[in-house]
């Protein structure tokens, strides 16, 4: 799509609101043809990053490039190659669903009306109903159908599952899988539903208080980050054990339980060097991993 396999790139992006740094030297890339999940707690900087990506927010420092252009000066024709599903799914409340479709169809030359109507049918959204009378889940489905109908190459979704119930979320995921199956499409999404992220993402970028903590393929992260129960021969140290790659340390039953990023053999050797045996090792679900990364520092210190 943009020649070099990278659809979007953040290069040392800092965004300040007054004295608050929403993003603090953020760098990461969104590779073409995959699904990148941008994760973080509320206030971590996810939405700020997406606003910068869409050219809605000039960074205080650094640069965001999208489809080979500076995000701030993206030509309108290129902008049409990006689909955006926003947080809260803002739609004109007084319009009927069919009017929303017609309105969007007029705005995008590549709008595939038949595709849009097919999705709405699949979601069982009544076209004659006014937006104001739709449930949150249905509004999300309308926003998604409309955003994807121009067949954008790059789809950006900010918490698209927000407000969807379990069944609606599953239908939504199925649509996502269909989207990924279409060759060459790139997705960037934020979500708090980490089991869904696990299903769809190839790559994860974890933001914590404006700083990138993880930027790696999902399988690498899951393979490299594990939780170890340490047993010290003597009295366990008062402070959290200093291990290379330590993510989180916490006291458990008088011993230390640590989450560490690194090759297992290396972690075992490092534990041995500080007088501890590894009593057990377990892989972490993305949810546990997320928790350990985002509260790690406070607990370890």
């Amino acid at each position: 799509m943009s020649g070099h396999g990278i659809v979007a790139r953040f290069d040392r992006v800092t965004a300040c609101f007054g004295t608050h740094r929403a993003l603090d030297g953020v760098s990461f890339a969104v590779p073409a043809g995959g699904v990148t999940a941008l994760l973080g707690r509320n206030g971590a900087g996810k939405t700020t990053a997406i606003r910068a990506l869409l050219g809605l927010l000039p960074p205080t420092r650094g640069r965001v490039t999208v489809l080979g252009h500076d995000a701030l000066t993206l030509p309108p024709a290129e902008r049409g190659r990006i689909g955006y599903v926003g947080e809260g799914h803002p739609l004109p409340r007084w319009m009927k669903v069919a009017d929303v479709v017609a309105y969007q169809a007029a705005a995008f030359p590549t709008f595939d009306r038949a595709l849009c109507l097919r999705w709405l049918e699949r979601f069982a959204v009544p076209p004659k109903r006014r937006v104001a009378q739709l449930s949150r889940g249905m509004r999300a489905q309308v926003a998604l159908s409309v955003a994807l109908a121009p067949r954008p190459e790059f789809v950006v979704m900010d918490d698209p599952a927000l407000g969807l119930d379990t069944v609606a979320r599953r239908e939504f995921l199925e649509v996502m899988i269909d989207l990924i199956q279409e060759e060459g499409r790139t997705l960037l999404l934020t979500s708090h539903v980490l089991t869904d992220v696990e299903r769809v993402a190839d790559r994860v970028v974890l933001l914590d208080r404006g700083v990138v903590r993880i930027d790696a393929p999902l399988d690498d992260v899951r393979h490299l980050v594990r939780r170890y129960d340490l047993v010290f021969a003597g009295a366990p140290p008062e402070e959290g054990p200093a291990l290379p790659g330590l993510v989180r340390a916490r006291r458990r039953h008088g011993q230390w339980q640590v989450t560490v990023r690194g090759d297992e053999a290396a972690v075992r050797a490092a534990a041995q060097a500080i007088g501890a045996d590894v009593a057990s090792v377990e892989p972490l679900s993305l949810e546990d991993l997320f928790v350990d990364y985002t509260i790690g520092e406070e607990v370890a210190s």
């Binding site: 599953r170 199925e174 990924i180 199956q181 299903r199 190839d202």
Partner: peptide
Amino acid sequence: VRELARDLVINPNTIAK
């Protein structure tokens, strides 16, 4: 890969791997 991706609702790249 395609069928399984749809049935299990997971990324086809994961199935391919």
